[in-house]
């Protein structure tokens, strides 16, 4: 059985990754799950300058989901290089750096400054954060800007570039096509869905940011549909995420056209969800007689 997933000129050992912002830099989960079994570890988003994050509280639970407004809290490039890279260098799984910014220059600057690091396997470019004013969603909702940003970043590195898309658009397929046209090596979809909770006692939004990003099983059907639509129109691999808790959820994504998946909020519920999901996928493949990940595709 071949579980590998080819992205650009390299292969992920298996299709199960852990999503950016839900797994820190891996160290936080090292005692709770086998990091060497991960298909990929997508780091917390990195911006050029450190960001303290948004006002409090940052979380509210919703039916089968949660809304977050973390605000890309991260240590910035300088401290990333001194404090985080040494640990990432010890990991055997592919480490994919999630990159965020508010201008094209900021994205470019992050990549230029970290590109020599061997610990970084690829970049996932966050053009979909709903929680900061210029957190990339301005890029992610405009196909022209997506293509231009992808082209700019493409010139800066030989590493794979994965564009992470927002579902908060009229047609995610158009955005995915723009990313491919710009030279992207893969598409991650989806980032969180914009959501809001109002506290009827205080008569105010539950979080000071007013709205935030909805994640968890509540958005899984939105993600599966996005993967289906995107995988129809691009030739590059599609990485599906949104509400995956179990292997059955992951298999839905793969059957809808995903080549790989990420577990996000599911890590909070089950710290070793990645291992369980991978084992479930393998059992499913055995039973179905699938030899490789592509065997999930083309059933409908």
């Amino acid at each position: 059985m071949d579980l590998t997933v080819k992205i650009r000129n390299k292969t992920l050992p298996n299709p199960v990754g852990v999503a950016s912002g839900t797994f820190g830099y891996g160290e936080e989960y090292a005692q709770l799950t086998d990091l060497s079994a991960l298909g990929a570890l997508y780091t917390k988003a990195l911006t050029v300058e450190p960001r303290p994050g948004n006002a409090l509280p940052r979380l509210v639970e919703t039916p089968a989901g949660m809304i977050n407004s973390i605000g890309l809290a991260n240590v910035g490039v300088e401290r990333f290089l001194t404090e985080k890279i040494p640990y990432l260098e010890t990991l055997t799984c592919p480490v994919i750096l999630n990159v965020a910014g508010s201008t094209e220059e900021e994205y470019a600057s992050v990549i230029s400054r970290v590109d020599s690091q061997n610990a970084i396997w690829a970049y996932e470019v966050n053009i979909s954060c709903p929680n900061v004013k210029h957190g990339g969603m301005a890029f992610g909702t405009d196909p022209v800007q997506v293509e231009r940003l992808t082209k700019t970043l493409r010139k800066l590195t030989d590493k794979a570039i994965i564009m992470k898309l927002t579902p908060n658009v009229t047609d995610i397929a158009l955005i995915a096509q723009a990313a491919e046209a710009g030279g992207a090596d893969a598409i991650s979809c989806i980032n969180t869905v914009m959501g809001m909770v109002v506290d009827i006692n205080s008569r105010k939004p539950a979080i000071p940011a007013i709205s935030g990003g909805l994640s968890g099983p509540a958005i899984r059907p939105v993600g599966v549909a996005a993967v289906w639509r995107v995988s129809r129109v691009v030739t590059i691999p599609v990485i599906g995420l949104g509400g995956i808790l179990t292997w059955e959820d992951a298999v839905q994504y793969l059957l809808a056209g995903a080549d790989a998946i990420q577990i996000g909020t599911g890590n909070f519920v089950t710290p070793d969800a990645s291992v369980k999901v991978l084992n479930g996928i393998i059992s499913y493949m055995k039973e179905a007689g699938f030899q490789k990940i592509e065997d999930f595709h083309g059933h409908f």
């Binding site: 820190g24 936080e28 709770l32 994050g53 409090l56 979380l59 639970e61 977050n68 809290a73 909070f268």
Partner: peptide, 17 residues
């Protein structure tokens, strides 16, 4: 006390000032 998601320091959700 603060609303918490991961409990292990990964998500930055339970921050206080």
């Amino acid at each position: 006390e603060q609303m918490m998601a991961c409990g292990v320091g990964a998500c930055m959700g339970c921050a206080i000032e």
